[in-house]
Design a protein around this nucleic acid. Structure first.
Ligand code: FES
Ligand code: FES
Lengths: 161, 161
DNA sequence: CCTAAACTTTAGTAAAATGGTTAACTTTAT
DNA sequence: ATAAAGTTAACCATTTTACTAAAGTTTAGG
């Protein structure tokens, strides 16, 4: 029921790159150092982010990593699922998995709702929002209040089961 | 990020007992058969439910299991946490775990909110509600509509971060 | 063209979690 | 007594997790 370190590191990495103002690509080693990620572990995670289409990598001397999309277009959910695959709170909630118990299982829809609520939060959160928040946090919240995400959720989540 | 089989089986077990109308205790073997649980696995789970205070067990011939509390007082969250321990979507969200990154980590409150949303659903769901629903489901919903839980959530969840 | 800097790929690995099974033990109704 | 229940503890194979390591590939710059 917990985020893996891989995914946690992937989030930190994406956040690190999104916070970068220069337009030159960042080296994985530097990111690892800044974000307290085992460097040898990160170079294993980077290709996964790449094949998920989240980052672009430049090989060779002077190479590095940069984002493929705008930070405002990258959600927390997308990053997590790029590393861990589809998020599911129970086995029977994975994609099309047809659980034979589903029709008569009264708990199923409860898990489905719990998952929906959770995913709504992860989906309403973009890299841009996070960077924005951490920067405004440094000097007495300027732009968006931290309650922003909650506000979004309230409007976006549909609660029908 | 997924419920373990242990917890899933625990839920089925609790549900099975709650659905039982007789006042005589149920045998773990019978429950296992009804709920598709490996019997030898269940007899390992039962003591955990007992030490969590959820069930009362009677040893010896003619013994079995019955609930300690009323089904309306047992939430889904409580059952899951009885087996898996505190639910936390990320390591830094476990109890008092003081993550050194927390102060400067912009993602933390997002995970906290996602978890809160999820837990709200699991907490609004009681055994009584589930039994009620599965029984009314058998003959064209009679009492509470399946949207019940959602309705509850809408009112109960506080969305401030 | 050669070398160092960067990502890529593939292996390997120790420790823990997962999902079970087995068997010896204790309690209790009959 | 004895058989029927739950209790306890140990065991086990497999998978996942969180890393480490090393050989390979691409590319800028001298
Ligand atoms: S079938 Fe999905 S929770 Fe029971
Ligand atoms: S410190 Fe909790 S999510 Fe970063």
């Amino acid at each position: 029921m917990q985020l893996t370190r891989r995914a946690e590191y992937a989030i930190r990495t994406m956040l690190d790159i999104a916070s970068n103002l220069d337009d030159q690509p960042l080296m994985s080693k530097e990111i690892a150092a800044r974000q307290d990620i085992p460097p040898n572990f990160l170079i294993q995670i980077v290709p996964e982010l790449r094949s998920a289409g989240l980052i672009h990598t430049v090989r060779g001397s002077g190479g590095g990593i940069y984002l493929t999309k705008k930070p405002s277009e990258i959600t927390l959910r997308y990053i997590v699922e790029a590393i861990e695959g589809p998020i599911a709170l129970n086995q029977c909630l994975i994609g099309d998995a047809s659980c034979e118990r589903k029709p008569r299982c009264p708990v199923h829809e409860v898990w489905a709702l719990a998952q929906k609520q959770m995913l709504a939060v992860l989906e309403a959160t973009t890299l841009a929002g996070l960077v924005d928040q951490s920067q405004s946090g440094k000097k007495a919240s300027k732009t968006s209040a931290p309650t922003d995400v909650a506000g979004k959720i309230n409007n976006e989540v549909e609660l029908e089961v």
